[in-house]
Design a protein around this nucleic acid. Sequence first.
DNA 1: GGTGTGACAACAA
DNA 2: TTTGTTGCCACAC
Length: 106
Amino acid sequence: MTGTDNIPTQQRVWQVLSQVPDGKVVSYGQLAEMAGLPGAARWVGSTLRKLPDGTPLPWHRVITSQGRIAFPADSDSARRQRELLRREGVVITGNKVNMALYRWQP
DNA sequence: GGTGTGACAACAA
DNA sequence: TTTGTTGCCACAC
């Protein structure tokens, strides 16, 4: 097609992300795949980076496939993310989340 | 249209 | 387990 079919890829990611429920998390790869972009995990991360501070989107529910926070454990961003997750009831142990328990599976 | 980039993922040592 | 390497994708120059 010549471009009439493209809904902004970014927008599709936002849409999927907005569906992640409280207390659940998804990996970058999973999010990419759900948005119809298998293999674009890395790109998703780069894109989330552009979100403004006050975004209504649950960016904090996106973590690595290993259940780790993608930021350095001692960074402010990592702390903020842990705080938000914990606030939703997600137990974090050593900068890690138990994917078996909190992974979002629609 | 080629090149570099990154909040990743899978695999080798 | 931790560290390094390679593959991926869409985007910005």
